[in-house]
Simulated assay, not measured.
Amino acid sequence: MLCRPGAASLSGMTGATLDRPILAPAPLRLVRAALALLRRLVDYTLILLLAAMLLIVFAQVVGRYLFNHSIPGADEAATFAQIWMVLLGAGYAMRQRLHVAIELVIERLPVPAARLLLVPVAGLCLWFLWVVGQGGLLLMQVGAWQTSPGLQVPMDIPYAMIPIGAAYFALEAGLSFGAAILGLEKVTTGGGVRVD
């Protein structure tokens, strides 16, 4: 991170040192780089899942109505892609603060009280995601003994998205709630629907 010139002069630095950037500690830079890489990977995975789902459904429609031939397992593959996309996309929506939130009480509170109220809210959300992740792991154990009817893949592969999606959602929720609680971001999103 680069330091603002005003902040550098407050810490007693001379004018000559203002030209050099002040970098964050190496572990923090590594964490930021890993988070950026993970987010980029999630973005590309969501794009690929959407493209795969659209192509599979399009191929199935063309095959069924033009050639009177159904592609075996196409419906199942499109369904799995959609499920993976939704569960992974929930974390993306959390990153963009696009989830529905009832902020009536928080908007009426003073900022310190609103931040304090976010602590149990964050705790409940993270606890819920923990329960979902644990349930997904149990479902994967059951799914390891089953195969899907169309694609004949072990069902623990499609079920793996439940704990993966819950873990990514928890990461983004923790970062979002943490930033609001620590005062790095606004407590509320401002209401309304984002259209950008």
Rank of each mutant, 00 (worst) to 15 (best):
G15Q: 13
H69Q: 15
A122H: 07
E185H: 11
V142Q: 11
I106S: 06
Y168W: 15
E103H: 01
G12N: 04
A101V: 05
E172C: 11
A33Y: 01
V121P: 02
G143Q: 06
R32L: 06
G190L: 04
Q96I: 00
T189K: 08
V57I: 13
L87E: 12
L184M: 13
G191C: 09
F177H: 02
G89Y: 08
P5F: 06
Q96A: 14
G135Y: 13
L138P: 00
G15C: 03
A26V: 11
Y65H: 15
L117E: 09
A90C: 09
E185K: 09
V153S: 05
G6E: 14
M140L: 04
A52F: 13
R40F: 08
P72R: 09
Q82G: 15
G150Y: 05
L50D: 11
L118H: 06
V86P: 04
R97S: 08
L50N: 09
V121H: 05
D43H: 12
A144Q: 14
R29I: 02
P5C: 03
Q60I: 10
V42C: 04
R4I: 04
T17E: 15
V195W: 15
A173S: 14
M53C: 11
F58D: 00
Y92A: 14
P110G: 03
E103F: 02
P149F: 07
R20H: 08
A101T: 04
R115Q: 12
T17G: 03
G150V: 00
R95M: 01
